[in-house]
Design a protein around this nucleic acid. Structure first.
Length: 618
RNA sequence: GGACCCGUGGUGUAGCGGCCCAACAUGCCAGCCUGUCACGCUGGAGAUCGCCGGUUCGAAUCCGGUCGGGUCCGCCA
């Protein structure tokens, strides 16, 4: 415990007493971790979040206390008074921090009885059905692993706050009842009682509000902000989650990246001081480079297995595809790519194992998966060798750098698909083969994202990140269409080449966060919005406040948002953010403890002017 | 919206057509025990196998549906 707070129930915590305290009176409070009843002698292990201390209750020394201790069961809450005593020689417990002493009880007070819990609280490694843990989350939280993770998260947030305040950031809360904002995800909606027929939306992020704070002159803002998105859930996605949201004025991309990198490094030192960082300063990859080398915009840099372009071995000097394997030649002729990764040691994979990889690749959108296995004697086994010919097959393998016992996996497809499929395979195989050092944290920055991606259906350029993202100064001239008319957009417009002042922070293959330098000039914003197919009226409706604000002196500004849940999960070596959230929801969005969501009370609909017309509720 | 996996005493698992009104471990209850530390010993209670329907002489076991949980794809920054 840091600063002692006076308590009638305890003088010390259960993790505090040491041999040097021997002979002193003490009173402890906590839960009964375990009880060992030897008849006239009862041992109780008393637990609180600070540790465990053994209490000894002797029938001859303290008959009343002994009678009480006889009634005690696991998870009863006690306050025990007694004398700290060094344990008898040979009976010390080296596995407990307090194992050199025990509390010889003079008084055992039962503060609260407890039913037998639905799962083991005193065995941290016992497997428990997650639904059960969620239903009794308060008991799950009583378990050591959850306490450790929630403490880690608390430390993380504490370090983040301290570093921001040190740098003069202003911590500001933005509202949760706002107007629907046109971001990618579906909004959660809250009906308004005072204005029937209208709704608030819960924020997907405080994006517009923080930009308005910059116009408000606050200069450096941050918030540990709750965000809401009504989309399907995953292990790393909850309907409500927490972001570190920050924004700065009068900064460029380097300034934001520089600050956040310092933040991350210092957070690591504060929260996981013994864990190594892969590389400092964090590597910076352009989006193009990340896709080219790793097939991902959030690559795990802890292992290699980079994508290899096979085109040089499959084409003649004029660039014509001549591999002899129709699938490859066709892909190349159509402007696609043939790329490979090398799975080390997987040449001995069985046919069914390779079939399984093929299914995986198909699931990611590939048409198929070609492979070449390098046998122990260096010979090549491959279903496509007969098309390529021995010489070309050998050249392909040589280009990949595959050694004996390695398996070369090849995907031929349009460029984005080939990279994506191989990137996912790389990630999957990296984890199956245990290629990444689990102890290491590998941060990296991804920069120079494309400003837009083409939306064929609506014939417009959608912002890849955020409609306010700025363009790199050298690409300013590209914010146009081939026709010159921003209303007549086409997939080969120069706009498709424009790169944004946008940056993502990735950690061990997870996207931790992303941000950008925003456009603060109205004319440029209007231009970007026009490319995004937004009409003047539509702009005013969706972004009215920000557009108005920009008429009154908007400083250049930019920022970032970082997923706190993901960050905490990674630091706690978890792949599931539920493990670092006190009260998470299931994949179907229900809270098993509170039994939410639930049908409204009768009258609530009427008050809101609503009527339920959906299918019958179960 | 889709694919796959799981659902058996309180808990974790086994059983996968009749030998099962279901086994093991642990927990629980009772008794005994003065140095235990996952205390030990003795005895006991506890599940109609998520739910509904079907196939069969016979279903925990096979089939269909449904509910709940998870992983993934779509979706989502």
């Amino acid at each position: 415990m840091s600063q002692a707070i006076e308590s009638p129930y305890r003088s010390h915590t259960c993790g505090q007493l040491r041999a040097t305290d021997s002979g002193r009176p003490a009173r402890l409070a906590g839960w009964v971790h375990r009880r060992r009843d030897l008849g006239h002698l009862i041992f109780l292990e008393l637990r609180d979040r600070y540790g465990i201390t053994q209490v000894i209750v002797d029938a001859t020394e303290a008959p009343v206390a002994h009678a009480a201790a006889s009634r005690v069961r696991n998870e009863f809450v006690l306050s025990v008074a007694g004398t700290v005593a060094a344990r008898l020689a040979g009976t010390e417990n080296v596995r407990l921090a307090t194992g050199a002493i025990e509390l010889r009880a003079s008084e055992v007070e039962i503060l609260s009885e407890a039913k037998t819990p639905p799962f083991y609280i005193n065995e941290p490694d016992a497997p428990i059905d997650e639904a059960l843990r969620l239903r009794y989350r308060y008991l799950d939280i009583r378990r050591e692993p959850m306490q450790r993770r929630l403490l880690l998260r608390s430390k993380l947030v504490q370090a983040i706050r301290a570093i921001h305040h040190e740098h003069g950031f202003v911590e500001i809360e933005t509202p949760n009842l706002i107007r629907s904002t046109p971001e990618g995800a579906r909004d959660f909606i809250v009906p308004s009682r005072l204005k029937p027929g209208t709704v608030y939306a819960l924020p997907q992020s405080p994006q517009q509000l923080k930009q308005l704070l910059m116009v408000g002159g606050l200069d450096r803002y941050f918030q540990i902000a709750r965000c809401f998105r009504d989309e399907d859930l995953r292990g790393d996605r909850q309907p409500e989650f927490t972001q570190l949201d920050l924004e700065m004025s009068f900064v460029d991309e380097a300034a934001v990246i520089g600050f956040v990198e310092e933040l991350a490094i210092r957070v690591m030192a504060a929260v996981v001081p013994d864990r190594p960082l892969l590389e400092v300063p964090f590597p910076r990859l352009t989006f193009h480079e990340a896709i080219e080398r790793f097939g991902s915009d959030k690559p795990d840099l802890r292992f290699g297995m980079e994508l290899i372009d096979l085109a040089p071995e499959l084409t003649d000097p004029t660039g014509a595809a001549v591999s002899g394997f129709r699938v490859f030649d066709q892909a190349l002729a159509d402007g696609g790519r043939v790329q490979a990764i090398v799975a080390p040691g997987m040449a001995s994979a069985s046919r069914s194992q390779i079939d399984e990889l093929t299914e995986l690749a198909r699931g990611y959108g590939a048409k198929g998966l070609a492979w070449l296995a390098v046998e122990a004697d260096g010979s090549i086994r491959s279903p496509i060798a007969k098309f390529l010919g021995a010489e070309r097959a050998a050249a392909v393998v040589a280009r990949t750098g595959a050694k004996s016992a390695d398996l070369v996996l090849v995907v031929a497809d349009r460029p984005a698909m080939a990279a994506d499929v191989l990137g996912r395979l790389r990630s999957e195989l990296g984890s199956r083969l245990g290629l990444a050092d689990p102890d290491v944290f590998g941060y990296c920055w991804i920069t120079q994202f494309p400003m837009y991606k083409w939306d064929q259906e609506n014939r417009r350029w959608d912002a890849t990140h955020n409609p306010f993202s700025g363009v790199r100064p050298e690409d300013l001239d590209l914010l146009t269409t081939t026709s010159g008319d921003l209303a007549r957009r086409a997939p080969d417009d120069p706009a498709g080449q424009a790169r944004a002042l946008q940056y993502d922070l990735a950690l061990n293959g997870w996207e931790l966060g992303g941000g950008s330098i925003r456009i603060n000039q109205r004319d440029l914003l209007a231009r970007s919005f026009a490319l995004q197919g937004q009409t003047a009226d539509g702009m005013a409706e969706k972004f009215g406040a920000v557009l108005d604000a920009f008429e009154y002196g908007a400083p250049p500004h930019g920022g970032i948002a970082i997923g706190i849940d993901r960050w905490a999960a990674l630091l706690a070596d978890q792949t599931n953010i539920r493990e670092v959230m006190a009260f998470p929801k299931t994949q179907s969005g229900s809270d098993l403890m509170l039994d939410a969501p639930s049908a409204p009370e009768p009258g609530q609909y009427a008050e809101l002017g609503l009527r339920y017309v959906g299918p019958a509720r179960t």
